[in-house]
């Protein structure tokens, strides 16, 4: 059996009432679900004996600019046991712009979520240390949001005196 089907089958048998959308583009397998189920699914994917997605490779967000629920969170997981990469996607609710942190499941998520917070301004609930990653703490904007200009906003970052 294909491993993609196996992942879906395992998830369906564990969470029968959950709605999962799957896409398969150029061999990249992706599962999309509602943000409320994020922690449950992540924990299951990591701890299930047959799946074992132990390595969280990457966490990022996409800004769709003009859509309702403008941010989508993207997680890339890798199963060392099965040599399989899985992508998870979930939309962030517009009203709160916040989502549960997965840093309790993978410790590597700590900094990756801080980066997303810095760049997109998405709040992570129950994050141990939510600070800016790259930009100075005094900086007010979130650079990777689509409305932020490439050359920045003049005066937002101070220069030392000559």
């Amino acid at each position: 059996m294909d491993f993609k089907e196996k992942v879906i089958q395992q998830l369906n048998s564990q969470f029968p009432e959950m709605k999962l959308e799957t896409t398969d583009f150029r061999g990249d397998f992706c599962i999309k679900f509602s943000p409320d189920n994020l922690l449950m699914i992540c924990e299951f994917l990591k701890n299930n004996d047959q799946l074992k997605f132990l390595l969280c490779e990457d966490i990022t967000a996409i800004d769709w600019a003009s859509r309702t629920n403008r941010f989508t969170m993207v997680y890339h997981l890798f199963s060392l046991k099965n040599k399989f990469r899985l992508r998870l996607k979930t939309d962030v609710d517009d009203s709160t712009t916040s989502i549960e942190s997965v840093s309790s499941i993978w410790r590597t998520a700590n900094w990756q979520e801080r980066e997303v917070y810095d760049m997109y301004g998405i709040n992570f609930l129950n994050h141990p240390d939510l600070r800016r990653m790259y930009m100075p703490e005094e900086f007010e904007y979130h650079p990777l949001r689509k409305e932020f200009p490439v050359m920045g906003i003049p005066g937002s970052l101070p220069l030392p005196k000559k």
């Binding site: 583009f25 150029r26 990249d28 992706c30 490779e57 990457d58 990022t60 996409i62 993207v74 890339h76 990469r85 992508r87």
Partner: peptide
């Protein structure tokens, strides 16, 4: 239209590009 993730083994570790 679509999104892909491509990772390679760089000297420092896994370098990946995720393009939408």
């Amino acid at each position: 239209v679509g999104d892909i993730y491509q990772a390679v083994e760089n000297p420092k570790g896994e370098l990946g590009f995720y393009i939408v």
